[in-house]
Design a protein around this nucleic acid. Structure first.
Lengths: 231, 231
DNA sequence: ATAGGATATTGTATAAATTACACTAAGTTT
DNA sequence: AAACTTAGTGTAATTTATACAATATCCTAT
């Protein structure tokens, strides 16, 4: 595809996506390795310019679709970063998005023009990132830590069917503190938002735990009636 | 000043400010009346284009300074609105800011090129606004309603010295619900963030109430140590 | 088959926070 | 001095949060 085939660009206006996933007991984000200067070989948030004829949300969704096989993903706008010197080659204002996905449900698509490859990286142990992406990530992580306490968004990071221990571990990792098991279960079940399935974990080398599903419909109904989730 | 004397503009990139104030028992916002098309004679949020050589936050501060005699104002970025059709004359992406000011401390500056006049309007009773400013205001109002419950930002809307009844009324107006007087006082005083002054209200035709000041220094210290304000 | 290992599951007592609620005090106006 | 207006105050009942440990189930290894 030639450059002239592409839609006209706003040359100074972009989106970047902070895509969180939860896998192997760790909180991870999706990063690409840059193939070009500036910040060649650095890890960076996936991002792209915003086309003249698309909304910003659409641009962010496009970036995500290019990387993964998108499938009803949680996404919200995070913050806009526009400091004069945030990009070494001129002014680029970027709107950062915050996204939560179920790692297992998505396969990473290979290659794109500007990036070598996309990979899941543990948030706890990251190298320096390109541009001001460290700053963007920090903002996103704080948002996640706050939001998970008063909105049931943790489920977006887990498989459809999960155990209470998995859910608890997710909260512990994100909030970076241990939680009492009995109190956690009591509390989370008290909302009546979990459906207990007639099914158990498989292939574990110990007692298998019951599986649960998040009752999204019920949550949406309760929300309309002023219900508030608060862990 | 000639147009050519102005710094170079990003023609498609602006800021808009939602400036809240509290006066005569009502929550108000600062609006300007547009002097030009589009939306001539409509009320609109104060805003302006972002210069090439200034950060977005600076642009927002500039807009506010042009309107009021700025004086340590609370301001934070709210959200970025960039739908393709939000501006009838072409694509304009705007970063909205959210600001709280003490009405009494600020005098409104007269006139600017594009606006007839700035005025405080009660949020509860507004005419249709220009562009998508209604949407922006709604987002800002929700932010205020949420944030006032877990951050002591209400004080930004009151005079330095205030009574507990004034504070309570502020919360009642913003949260749109009545609050029990005794419980409110117990709770708000329990944080230890209010300094009781040796002074009372003046010129009221009934028993004068004690005046209080918000102890910002103490709040900042406590915050560092993990204290959380929550009403 | 059985013992040992791993995680799942469950309840209670105590402390803390929230809620509901009504009268007296102080100053002003008539 | 009576009437009006807002300020200021405490307690009991309920709800919610916290701290804490033993048994159940299933798998693995011997």
């Amino acid at each position: 595809m030639e450059i002239n085939d592409l839609p006209k660009l706003h040359s100074d206006f972009s989106v970047d996506c902070v895509v969180f996933g939860f896998d192997k007991g760790e909180l991870r984000i999706l990063l690409i390795e840059r193939a070009e200067e500036p910040f060649k070989d650095y890890l960076a948030l996936p991002g792209n310019l915003v086309y003249d004829n698309e909304n910003i949300d659409q641009a962010a969704n496009r970036v995500l679709t290019e990387l993964t096989s998108l499938n009803d993903v949680y996404m919200e706008q995070l913050y806009t970063f526009g400091d004069v010197n945030r990009h070494p080659q001129g002014r680029v204002i970027t709107v950062a998005y915050f996204s939560l996905i179920k790692v297992k449900k998505h396969t990473l698509n290979p290659l794109s023009t500007y990036a070598k490859k996309a990979q899941w990286c543990a948030v706890a142990d990251l190298p320096p990132l390109a541009f001001d992406h460290q700053l963007i990530l920090e903002k996103a992580y704080k948002r996640l830590q706050n939001k998970i306490r008063y909105q049931p968004i943790g489920f977006e990071l887990l498989p459809e069917k999960f155990t209470l221990s998995q859910l608890q571990q997710l909260y512990e990792v994100i909030l970076e503190k241990p939680i009492d098991k009995r109190n956690f279960r009591k509390k989370i079940l008290s909302f009546g938002l979990l459906i207990e399935l007639d099914e158990k974990q498989k292939n574990v080398s110990h007692r298998a735990a019951k599986l649960y599903k998040f009752n999204k419909t019920r949550y949406n109904n309760l929300k309309k009636m002023g219900f508030s989730f608060e862990l």
